[in-house]
Amino acid sequence: MSEQRLDGGIANAGQVVRVGPHVLRPSSPYSGSIHAFLRAVKDAGFEGAPMPAGIDEDGRERLVFIDGEVPVAPYPDWSQSDTALASVARLLRGLHDAAREFDPQGLAWNDGLADPAGGTIVCHNDVELSNVVFRDGVAVALLDFEFAAPGRPVYDVAQLARLCVPIEHDFDQDRIGWQPADRQARLRLVADAYGLDRDGRAELLPAMNDALARIEAAARRSLASADPNAVAMMNQRGGIEKFDRRRRWWTARYDQFANALL
């Protein structure tokens, strides 16, 4: 069958294709661990992730294609709705619940965006809109588990909020097509839809600090390595200066976000 290129991605941009009922993408040293995890959550009843079908002789991993809409920047209006955001948070909760019986010890994981505090639940760590499959405006599946690693579920919620509230300076939100919105209310919506309890809400903003520091460190490492895809994406999204803008924006509004979670 012919290969149909799929849009999105950074490190694997242009290398992810659909072939009939499957998606082919470059494998990594972590593919075996990720495939074991995906099979485990499927066995636990979670339907919102692609099933692995193995690794081909050419080194590409093969996963079952999930039909639906995957938004890419500039994000369409429907994907920025509160309905869409709440559905993503509920889907992430389903993943975490299904992951609780999976033992990640002894397996290799990508620590590029992993929770610096560690943990025992395998988290996605990169739930942005282009890694979510929607049907009729509701999230039905998560894609691209490349950065999956053990951590705290609240850290994964913080990464989701960072990317989908989003936690970003207005200038950089505009660059990737985010419409003006009440970001504090959207963070509260994430916490409500996911089902964070009182302790989880108290941990969310410190976890957000960890998530913001983690992605900045990862971006600086990518630029230092002169990865052409990373450099191109960074230039498209406001340059390395975006992290300074984000830090100032987040610090100035921290108390407002804290009050929104009360």
Rank of each mutant, 00 (worst) to 15 (best):
S222L: 15
A218Q: 13
A114M: 10
G119I: 02
A158F: 02
V64T: 13
T120H: 12
F65K: 09
A211P: 02
D136V: 07
A40N: 06
R5T: 14
R100I: 05
V64W: 14
M1D: 05
P150S: 09
Q256M: 08
F145D: 01
L107M: 15
L91A: 06
Q184I: 06
A139F: 00
A148E: 02
F65N: 05
L204E: 02
V17Q: 07
V72W: 02
G118R: 08
L91P: 01
G112E: 12
V122R: 02
F46N: 03
P29I: 08
R245C: 06
P206S: 09
R60T: 01
A219F: 09
D43H: 15
R186Q: 06
G32W: 06
D174Q: 14
K42C: 05
D7H: 15
L63I: 09
D43L: 10
W249L: 11
R100S: 05
E146H: 15
D192P: 10
E101K: 15
V17M: 11
P150N: 14
E3T: 15
V190T: 10
D210F: 04
I121T: 14
A49Y: 01
D192I: 15
R152H: 11
D126T: 07
A148R: 00
L204M: 11
Y30M: 12
R237Q: 12
A185V: 14
P228A: 05
R186W: 09
D244M: 03
D43C: 06
A99Y: 00
G195D: 07
S81R: 03
D197W: 11
T83I: 08
A11D: 08
R247G: 02
G195Q: 11
S2Q: 14
A98E: 03
L204S: 01
T120S: 14
G32P: 02
A218H: 06
W109D: 00
R248Y: 12
M234A: 10
G200D: 11
P228F: 07
R62A: 05
R25C: 00
M233R: 13
Q105N: 04
I34R: 00
E69S: 14
G106K: 09
Q256E: 12
C123A: 10
G118K: 06
R39S: 08
R186P: 05
I66P: 00
G200M: 05
D182I: 15
H35Q: 13
A108P: 02
G20C: 12
P26E: 02
P26F: 01
F257E: 08
D77A: 10
R62T: 12
N209S: 14
N110G: 13
R62Q: 11
N259L: 13
T251M: 13
A149H: 07
S81E: 05
L160T: 00
D227H: 15
Q105L: 09
V133H: 00
G32T: 12
L189C: 13
M233P: 01
N235R: 15
G48Y: 07
D197P: 04
A141T: 03
D156T: 13
H124L: 03
R237I: 14
G94T: 07
N209W: 04
A219Q: 07
